[in-house]
Amino acid sequence: MTGTDHRQGEPMASDDTALRILSTGDVAGIDIALPDVVSVVEQAYRTLAEGRSANPRKLTVTPEDGHSVAYAMLGRDGERNVVAVKTSYKYGLHEDRDKQHYYTTLTLYDDVTGLPVAMMDCGRVGALRTPAVSALLARELAAPGSRSALVIGTGTQGRLALPFLLTTLPRLDRLMLFGTHPEGIRAARAQLRAHFPDRELEIVSDLRAAAGQADIVLATAGPRTPASVPAEWLRPAALSVLVGYGIAPSTLHRADRVIATSAAQMRVTGTDMADETGELRAVDAEFPDVLAGRAAGRTDLGQRIFAYNSGLVVTDIALGHRFAQLALAQGLGTVVPLWR
């Protein structure tokens, strides 16, 4: 490896003929603390709000029968001076989860040296980035004094949702989970025990009662979930955060205030939340501007707020770059003479 990280002084980029490949196993072996993830993601949002990063609208393709979906995302992190391309492909959307195929990669380039940094499986990056964003949304938008949270779904995002929420809101003392997959419930319980062994998880079956008692409702379920929390189930001043599925379109259309990580991406990926006329509720503010203090989050203590977490590629770039730093420090990965 011939390049250096201009910010950290660590070897980063390869020569101009080779690319370091970080496999699923390589990335899985990297130890990173939840507060570190939150810090990296928050910095990525702030840099974007300052106009120093670029996050163009994602491209999407899907066949007529909807059996697969593919995304391509290009971006630039102005803090780290890194350019990257992320691709995502999911096949078998009409099948059970264990029959689906999902592949996602992130390729990073150093925009100071002009050399490639790494190409990696992006599964773990996304699995950490998304709940970190939800936790930041909760920190900024939940009503003061919020003490209870309900997570809907036990897939990849649901399993780490509560540990990340506790990272940004440590005073939460009632942690509820609604799920329909026993193995997912066991995995979510294990993740909470690993990160916060002194906290208890409450598995709920009465979704209406749980939603009415939660200050924060975080919907992370898959498209086949039976859960669909409508606006009238929510308590006054509740924050609902949509990552996947699990809350009804009325939570968006009857909210007092709507915050999105990206209004443009919400228009692309949030069409299932449209009303009977096919329209989406207008976004009141974008989250990077809220974090930077350029837009208000909660403007009244009694507001019900809807937050849309679609994820921005600049957060993948920042966290992927952090993983690349840690991987290189540990000598992980395989250098492939790709352009030789």
Rank of each mutant, 00 (worst) to 15 (best):
T4D: 10
H6V: 15
H6F: 13
R7M: 13
Q8E: 14
P11A: 09
P11T: 06
A13L: 06
D16F: 12
L19E: 06
I21Q: 05
I21E: 08
I21C: 08
T24A: 15
D26R: 04
V27N: 01
D31T: 05
V37E: 01
V38C: 11
V40Q: 03
E42T: 13
Q43Y: 00
Q43F: 00
R46V: 15
R46P: 10
R46T: 14
R46D: 14
L48M: 07
N55M: 04
R57P: 09
K58W: 09
L59S: 11
V61K: 00
P63R: 03
P63M: 06
A72L: 14
M73W: 03
M73G: 05
L74W: 11
R76M: 14
N81M: 08
V83R: 00
V83L: 13
T87K: 04
Y89E: 10
G92T: 08
D96Y: 01
D98W: 07
D98R: 05
K99L: 15
H101P: 00
Y103D: 02
T105Y: 09
L108P: 07
Y109S: 01
D110G: 13
D110I: 13
V112D: 12
M120N: 06
C122K: 06
C122G: 10
R124Y: 13
V125R: 04
A127H: 08
R129P: 02
L137G: 00
A138V: 09
R139S: 14
R139D: 15
E140G: 02
L141F: 06
L141K: 02
A143C: 10
P144H: 10
S148Q: 02
T154W: 03
L160Q: 00
L162V: 08
F164Y: 15
L165W: 00
L169R: 14
P170S: 07
P170L: 00
P170K: 00
R174S: 14
L177C: 06
F178E: 00
F178K: 03
P182L: 00
P182N: 02
G184A: 04
R186G: 10
A187I: 04
R189N: 13
D198T: 13
D198P: 06
E202S: 02
S205Y: 06
D206P: 01
D206M: 10
G212R: 04
R224F: 13
P226T: 15
P226D: 09
A227K: 03
V229S: 02
L234Y: 09
R235S: 05
P236W: 11
A238P: 01
S240L: 09
I247R: 01
I247M: 02
P249K: 02
P249D: 09
H253N: 03
R254I: 07
R254L: 12
A255M: 12
R257V: 14
V258Y: 02
S262D: 04
A263C: 07
A263F: 10
A264Y: 01
V268E: 05
T271R: 14
D272S: 14
A274R: 11
D275A: 01
E276R: 03
E276D: 04
R281F: 11
A285V: 04
D289N: 10
V290C: 09
V290R: 02
A292Q: 04
A292C: 08
G293C: 12
A295V: 14
A296Q: 09
R298L: 12
V313P: 03
V314I: 15
A318T: 10
A318K: 05
G320R: 01
H321V: 08
F323Y: 14
A324N: 01
L332I: 12
G333I: 09
T334G: 07
V335L: 07
W339Y: 14
R340N: 12
R340Y: 10
